[in-house]
Design a protein around this nucleic acid. Sequence first.
DNA 1: TGTCCGTTTCGTAATTTTACGAAATACGAA
DNA 2: TTCGTATTTCGTAAAATTACGAAACGGACA
Lengths: 110, 110
Amino acid sequence: MARLVTIPESDIATITSDQTELARYAKALSHPVRVYILTTLSKQTCCYSGDLAEILPIARSTLSQHLSELKNAGLIQGEFLPPKIKYCINRENWERSKHLMMQFYGLTIE
Amino acid sequence: MARLVTIPESDIATITSDQTELARYAKALSHPVRVYILTTLSKQTCCYSGDLAEILPIARSTLSQHLSELKNAGLIQGEFLPPKIKYCINRENWERSKHLMMQFYGLTIE
DNA sequence: TGTCCGTTTCGTAATTTTACGAAATACGAA
DNA sequence: TTCGTATTTCGTAAAATTACGAAACGGACA
């Protein structure tokens, strides 16, 4: 980018790693189905992919994609209990995302 | 969808309007540049598109797109003060998104 | 071994997002 | 009216997202 040459570095905005991380978590929350899944999992303990598949008006393969996005974002984790897979919130990253979000909204409370 | 016919409605997950609304706000936060802009605007008072353009390593047209996404999400608003446009946080919707996010994370504090 | 079950991966398609430069717009000032 | 400044819209392209059904997979069990 030409700008990186013509303008001193100190004048370039530094997008912090916290901001990039927050954006990543926000992306995970950017679909109603994923918000629903996370809300469900954060309230109760865990649940099976099949439970969600029966209840949600989307194809199983589509649900699977949403679950793997949440997994990639680190917000949930799956435990293979043949023949089912039990999904739970990843508490550590859940708290991390909460912390970043609070920080973003200027809430220092924890 | 066949599922809507073969399974009684009461067994179908209801994705609430709050969840859909939260997903919409989360989508607005799902890019590092937009997180940066919102953080900047929420801390200080307001700023001009040009201020951001000089500081961010992206094309002005790209910045404009991000700004209009934030506008469409209702999180910022622009005031035309020729020849510049002053952007500020939309406090009402900012608080609304904060509220939904707190609710989502199980924080009833406000 | 073969079969069933729950789930994911594959193949595909439509739509949206992100990005850029060039052109258009809106307005104040010369 | 013409010029200059600040910003957005247009045209375009590449990549990512969302969605589906069909096929594949891994393990339990007959």
